[in-house]
Design a protein around this nucleic acid. Structure first.
Length: 889
RNA sequence: GCGGGCGUGGCGGAACUGGUAGACGCGCCGGACUCAAAAUCCGGUUCUGGUGACAGAGUGUCGGUUCGAUUCCGACCGCCCGCACCA
């Protein structure tokens, strides 16, 4: 018997060194085995990994190790999403250079990731802030430009009038700049755009080709792209004193409700509103006020509905005498449709809210079935369901669909000016992707602006970021750099200036998966042959928060790379997608409202339930006598379970956990219990449970190793009942773990390992006193190996140690997954639950292949069934083969 | 505000495609071992009533479809994610 404790702290580094030495996880591009590309979303190098990373990378690692065991040539790389705002914020705060800060963070996070024992091919490591990466990105920008996939146009930014700087949406808090506190303004800048909207139709349609994506992500993307079929309608402005003739064009998906129109609303930044504002200071003031909301759609749409009457009146398309007021309104977006709508308060909630504020009334024009049109009124809930047209002259009695058709048909043939008043149009919500950022720490846009020649591609790549920059004042350091931007025009030689905007960091993460296939290629972003061999990524794993933007941009980028010859015929980058949940933790607060870290809190079970107490100092601090930290008798409020965050201090440091319990315990815990797509609640009890199970497995494998036959012994002819039972348990577990990992149901795989361990413990207990035959020894050997192989992808260090304990040569990381014998787990007799009227009243044990008549008779003969029937006549008996029997009375 | 998701014992969760609700783990209770404790091992554990066999209730709430609903449909409540310059 081997009773010593498993010492993860000593054992884990030993195996990691051995994997390194033997190059176990180096992936060769030239290989005959089938490929499998597993990728986790690469991290932003913030400095320390968090539990979310541990969960994400453990899941990917389980798949990588499992697929390797199943005979695949696995690509499992890692890199750094290294550009971004935090580096610049740190530069401002600590006077550190963004590059130095970023690379130091990468070094410490890499050490942390290494301590997790991930089977990564580190030789392919990339950092997006490295010129050797971003020069290829600049190449592709120029290729996209040449291919007509890039645009330059005006768009709005949040402007801080005090700091004279552009703010990100997250830097705008309640309409004010986060540092200056000044009310933000909207400013128009000329910026670079990728023409993602050219691909809208294809990005939408191709969602159908992604069966291994979660349905919810495809739905969210489809809604984001937002294809709609509607009608452009031009309304004639009624001339009046000081009002010139003109028109307002609106886009509507509900032309059927045209007779319910009560007003027209323009976006505050609509040209007509701007024009009217010149003569109307109050309107100008209203528009300026709207612009203080910032550019975020959420802020605009949650603001209280407000508007301002421009004084304009337009004619109803079907009745020249019917005039509608034209408002400028804060809930209309210039970016969507034409930036103007007609408001039908009865059938659109926003329009109704607006109408109720300004007393514009409403007129229902669609009446739900079974409701009397005469009494159908709307007060504060708009009706957007099905129905029949009412109060709509020639549309009365039509369905919504045919009314839409009729309005479109009429307006298409009604001239206004010299063209039809209405025009059918397919519209997309998706806007072009603005990539210009007025910041330093990003990939420079490789363009030179010349007075005479316009924007010209930079002749030499990479256009590197200058290193000598300062962050002691707000604004873009590139723009105020004394020399960097001044260059000669590559075309005419005249003095010109570099583009000082850098690219959105989403560009960096839109092609890194392709770069991993050959990160050594200095001449081009990708290598023909290799990129087609490895892509698409077979399994991509990351947070649900990236469901729309990152994934949509990557899908667009892949199409653009295809158009410019960088990825062969590939269209979709990720064949399989999995979105994992967050790691959350309880929050703790003292009576005076200060947040406490879990390490500062002791949880006790009391008769009244769980209670929290504040600790004197860190849990890990012990004095010389070995006494734990002193407990301060101060009640702490246990708050809601929330996403781990610095502000709530409810974080748990992976380093501390790995240092205390070992990487395997941490890995096991994040895979246990919670389904991977759902949030996992980090608890101290849970970690201790995982740590105990590590010890238990080590003891169990030790016991099995002592009882098991040598690893080269052949199977005896006949197996006794106990030996057969052990075999059945082992094979059943193997089958289930296999299925569970294949379907990414790691929590169930964990349960199967527990189950097998329980069964093997029981088997040892049952035969210990009796004579142990050769067949049982052989069965124990097989079961022990299966057990180790089953948890090896999840707890790789422990598995190596156990594998060696069982006397096996070689690494379990390189061992093949065994083939389960499915015939072994099929039972001859099955247990069928028997219900009466859908309520279970008994169990029927019967031959697997019993005929229905036999099942019926046996079911009715059961005591419990007879009792439940109470002599009532049986109406029918439903038999679901191999599942259930239901007796209906 | 709009779009998407989730909700099951004391707790995390399981339940394949509409077919035994509660696998597995944590916690708790009882027992073994121990001078004692920790660790470990064995047994029990949805709730209510009953010594018990058993009966009734039960998957956020309300309603519907079905022989049968955690699963499908409708409404509501609560929480979470995204909203285009956070990554």
């Amino acid at each position: 018997m081997d009773c010593e404790r498993y010492n993860a702290r000593e054992t884990e580094p030993k195996w990691r060194a051995l994997w390194d030495e033997s190059g176990t996880f180096r992936t060769l591009n030239e290989e005959s085995r089938p490929k499998y590309y597993v990728l986790e979303m690469f991290p932003y190098p913030s400095g320390r990994i968090h539990m979310g990373h541990v969960r994400n990378y453990t899941m990917g690692d389980v798949i990588a190790r499992f697929k390797r065991a199943r005979g695949f040539n696995v690509l499992h790389p890692m890199g750094w999403d290294a550009f971004g705002m935090p580096a610049e914020n740190a530069a401002m705060q600590n006077k550190s250079h963004p590059a130095a800060w970023t690379y130091a963070n990468i070094a410490s996070m890499k050490a942390q990731l290494k301590s997790m024992g991930l089977s990564l091919d580190w030789s392919r490591e990339i950092a997006t802030c490295d010129p050797s990466y971003y020069k290829h990105q600049q190449r592709m920008f120029l290729d996209f430009l040449a291919a007509g996939l890039v645009d330059r146009k005006q768009s709005k930014v949040n402007w801080d009038p005090v700091d004279h700087t552009v703010l990100a949406n997250e830097q705008v808090i309640d309409g004010r700049g986060w540092r200056s506190g000044a009310l933000v303004e909207q400013r128009e800048l000329t910026q670079w755009f990728f023409k993602i909207s050219d691909f809208a139709e294809d990005l939408l349609r191709a969602l159908d080709d992604l069966p291994r994506w979660p349905e919810k992500v495809r739905l969210m993307q489809a809604n984001w792209i937002g294809r709609s079929e509607g009608l452009l309608v031009r309304f004639e402005i009624a001339p009046a004193p000081s009002i010139e003739a003109g028109e307002v064009e609106v886009y509507t998906t509900r032309p059927d409700t045209l007779f319910g129109a009560k007003f027209i609303a323009l976006a505050p930044d609509h040209p007509i509103a701007a024009e009217r504002a010149k003569a109307d200071p109050a309107l100008a003031a209203f528009i300026a006020e709207c612009q203080h909301l910032g550019t975020s759609e959420a802020a605009v749409e949650t603001a209280e509905k407000r508007g301002y009457d421009t004084g304009l009146r337009v004619r109803h398309p079907f009745d020249p005498d019917w005039l509608l007021p034209v408002y400028a309104a804060n809930f209309v977006l210039m970016d969507y449709g034409t930036g103007a709508i007609f408001g039908c308060p009865a059938h659109d909630q926003r329009d109704l809210d607006f109408s109720n504020v300004y007393g514009l009334g409403n007129a229902p024009v669609v009446c739900p079935q079974g409701v009397d049109p005469a009494s159908f009124t709307i007060t504060d809930a708009a009706y957007d369901g099905e129905g029949v047209l009412i109060n709509s002259r020639f549309l009365d009695g039509l369905t919504i669909e045919s009314a839409k058709e009729e309005v479109a048909r009429r307006l298409e043939t009604t001239p206004l000016g010299n063209r039809p008043q209405g025009k059918r149009q397919v519209n997309f919500r998706l806007r072009d992707w603005g990539i210009s950022r007025q910041r330093y720490w990003g990939c420079p846009i490789p363009i030179i602006h010349c007075e005479a020649c316009g924007p010209v591609p930079a002749p030499e790549l990479p256009v590197e970021l200058p290193k000598d920059v300062t962050f002691d004042e707000p604004g873009n350091p590139l723009d105020r750099h004394p020399t960097w931007k001044h260059v000669a025009c590559p075309c005419c030689g005249a003095p010109a200036r570099r583009e000082t905007d850098t690219m959105d960091t989403f560009v960096d993460s839109s092609w890194y998966f392709a770069r991993f296939t050959d990160p050594w290629n200095e001449a081009a972003p990708t290598s023909a042959g290799l990129v087609e061999r490895w892509l698409p990524v077979d399994q991509y794993i990351g947070g649900i928060e990236h469901a729309i933007l990152h994934l949509l941009y990557a899908r667009f980028f892949t199409r653009a790379m295809q158009a410019t010859g960088h990825v062969g015929a590939l269209k979709e980058p990720f064949a399989g997608l999995f979105t994992q949940g967050m790691v959350v933790h309880e929050t703790y607060r003292t009576k005076d409202g200060a947040w406490l870290n879990p390490s500062e809190v002791e949880i006790k079970q009391t008769p009244e339930g769980r209670k929290a107490f504040r600790l004197g100092h860190s849990r890990l601090g012990h004095d010389r006598l070995g006494h734990g930290p002193e407990m301060v008798e101060e009640d702490v409020d246990i708050g809601p379970i929330e996403k781990m965050s610095k502000s709530k201090r409810n974080t748990v440091d992976p380093d501390e956990i790995i240092e205390t319990y070992g990487a395997d315990t941490a890995r096991w815990f994040v895979l246990s219990d919670s389904p991977p797509e759902r949030d996992v609640i980090w608890t101290e009890e849970g970690v201790q449970g995982s740590a105990k199970f590590v010890q238990r497995l080590w003891r169990l494998v030790g016991e099995l190793a002592d009882l098991a036959a040598p690893n080269d012994e052949v199977w005896p002819e006949d197996l006794s009942e106990p030996a057969l039972k052990i075999r059945k348990a082992a094979h059943a577990a193997l089958i289930k773990v296999e299925e569970d990992i294949e379907r990414l149901r790691f929590n169930r795989a964990v349960a199967q390992v527990h189950d097998l361990a329980n069964k093997l413990s029981a088997a040892i207990g049952a035969i210990e006193s009796a004579e142990i035959g050769a067949d049982i020894r052989r069965a124990f050997r097989e079961a022990a190996e299966f057990l180790v192989l089953c948890f090896a992808p999840m707890m790789p260090h422990l598995a190596e140690e156990c594998w060696a304990r069982l006397g096996n040569a070689g690494l379990v990381a390189e061992a093949a997954w065994p083939t389960a014998d499915r015939a072994l787990v099929v039972e001859d007799a099955i247990t069928l639950p028997v219900q009466v009227n859908g309520k279970k009243r008994g169990d029927l044990v019967i031959a697997r292949d019993a005929k229905n008549e036999a099942i019926e008779a046996a079911a009715l003969a059961l005591d419990g069934i007879q009792r439940a029937l109470e002599g009532r006549a049986v109406k029918k008996i439903i038999i679901v083969p191999q599942r259930i029997v239901n007796v209906v009375v």
